[in-house]
Design a protein around this nucleic acid. Structure first.
Lengths: 194, 194, 194, 194
DNA sequence: AATGAATGAGGATTCATTCAT
DNA sequence: GATGAATGAATCCTCATTCAT
């Protein structure tokens, strides 16, 4: 009797293991064997389910982005009004699900991967597009035509704080990062209205 | 007497080739042979002059940081007053020497390298420290105690714009990035004085 | 289910091939690829099973020493009385299992290896210790306190004859070497009793 | 003005450096560069004077054998009678010129080299032949036809004690080795006369 | 479904040797 | 006489990937 329905379990385990391994090694140079061992299976099986290393990385990337997206949607569902929605979007990026060391390290990996893999580039572009769209959507009622520029700066600051956090040894400071971005949001809105 | 004085020439060629190769491949996984070929020599000679791959990378990193540092010092020398100095520092980071695609790609490499190599981490910390010190030094006369927080945000935005630029195909938009940071500088100063 | 149980087969094949290759080349500078080719596999597999070149050498050394030890134990089991046991120990060292050209060449390798690798040094020390202990154990009933000195000389002569044999082209002369050592044993016993 | 007469000086320095380097590294795998550096010159010059690595080794080997030979001849010149001459030959092999750690290590190298290089084999054969001839020459008046067998055993013991000494960390025990061989010489002579 | 077995391709590194000056 | 410059060839080792079972 073949075990049925193992595929999604195995795939999920590998995705988790990929992120964890990148975080644990602190390096982008993780091997398929290391990932598979951490996921409790042979590297051959990892290839069987994903076809190749790049696809494992892409799946991990999709997972991180999906978790992030769900987080944002959940926060937006509970927020009322543009200002509250903006705050929700920003907070979601730095909360404890996304702002763990291994996830941050994985992001760095994905940025590097995006320079080689078109698919990774596309995923990253989708993420950036959604973030920008979310910000612009709720900024426009507040600041009108200044919205795109503000969104670009906010997005840049968010990415930069992620990058800087990726280099810190020790626990990441999500609260501090959130405060910085919210402060900047405040300034931008005031500035646009002045 | 043998041919003399090749060492500095070879080392410089390898440093340039390292940056160029990273830029051309778009990947962090460049080999010593590729670098050496681009620099017009055998990989054995590259090892002879640098001792190993990591030291080649570190030399390239030092070069990028040195060029950046020289640029900043040059700009500061011609600037009068805190405001002008702040603008000079920001402009220097995005001018054509530093904001070329291959240099941006190299920066990404160095961020990744810094997670593994203590020496690379140290170099990056020095860069971050100098940037922060420069910004704080000229912000304090304008905004007092708000200076460190502002500097952190400005630095984060700068890093984030670099990161985003690193993903763009096509020519980087240094002018746009500069405008964003200067705009934010303006907002922060106004905000602090209000 | 995959093909199973290859590991011991492969390891044994590599150990044999190592000894054979050293014997065939007459040189200590054999490469992993040469060994692996002789063993009928890729060098990558050799690394997979042993981890590295030195460990392959050490395994070969352990094998030679184990075969020698087994030979000695077997001979001792059938010998009655100190004199017979001494003869058995001496004969075992020069019988056809141990005194083949490739094994002799391997010994030379191990002596060289022992100067660099602590583990190899330890193995060689164990061999020397066992030989000395065996000789002393059966000499003492015959010659009393003269035993250790005699054992040292007998051991030295044995090693020296191995070394000299290692240089000879052509088939080794185990019978001649045995006769020399037995003759010396006889002299020493008579001398101690006189 | 070219420096005249440098050749013998350079060659001698390289020979000394070869022996010293083998002793210092404890390994047979010394590089030409290491030898040349120790001798205070470039590796290119070492090649210029010797033509290649093997020839450097051979020259070092010839040197060791020449020093040994001179030592023996010197000792023989002062010895009167066969017995005294035999003792002189044995002592010469273990005195402080020959029985230094680096020289012992070099011997091991030469034994290994002799399996590959015909010239090295020839040199070693010459050494063995001379030793045997010396021993036989002075044994014959004492023991008659037993001389060759005794010489073979004495030679074997000498080589074996060298080999064993080569593995010891710490200072070599020339006096102990000499005593062992002289004791055996005594036994053999008594045994032959009985 | 799952994995041990196996390898080809490649990569960093070393080194003896050659050459122009 | 002397050496810095330079490299081809080789070596150990790693790893993604494939395959038979």
């Amino acid at each position: 009797m073949p075990k049925l329905g193992m595929e999604p379990i195995r795939r999920a385990a590998l995705v988790e293991a990929t992120i964890a391994e990148i975080g644990a090694q602190g390096t982008l140079d993780v091997t398929v064997s290391q990932i598979a061992r951490r996921a409790g299976m042979s590297s051959a099986l990892a290839h069987h389910y994903f076809g190749g290393k790049e696809q494992i990385f892409l799946a991990a990337m999709r997972h991180v982005l999906a978790v992030y997206g769900a987080e944002v949607r959940g926060a937006l569902a509970m927020a009322e009004g543009p200002q509250a929605r903006l705050i929700a979007v920003i907070r979601a990026g730095f909360n404890s699900s996304n702002f763990r060391p291994e996830v941050i390290a994985a992001w760095l990996n994905f940025y590097a991967l995006a320079r080689t893999s078109p698919e990774a580039g596309r995923l990253l572009a989708v993420y950036k597009g959604r973030l920008a769209a979310n910000l612009v959507h709720d900024l426009r009622p507040l600041v009108g035509e200044a919205a795109p520029g503000i969104a670009e700066r906010l997005g840049g600051l968010i990415d930069g704080l992620y990058l800087r956090e990726g280099l810190r040894r020790g626990a990441p400071d999500g609260a501090g990062a959130t405060a910085h971005v919210l402060w900047m949001l405040d300034l931008e809105i005031k500035g646009a209205l002045a």
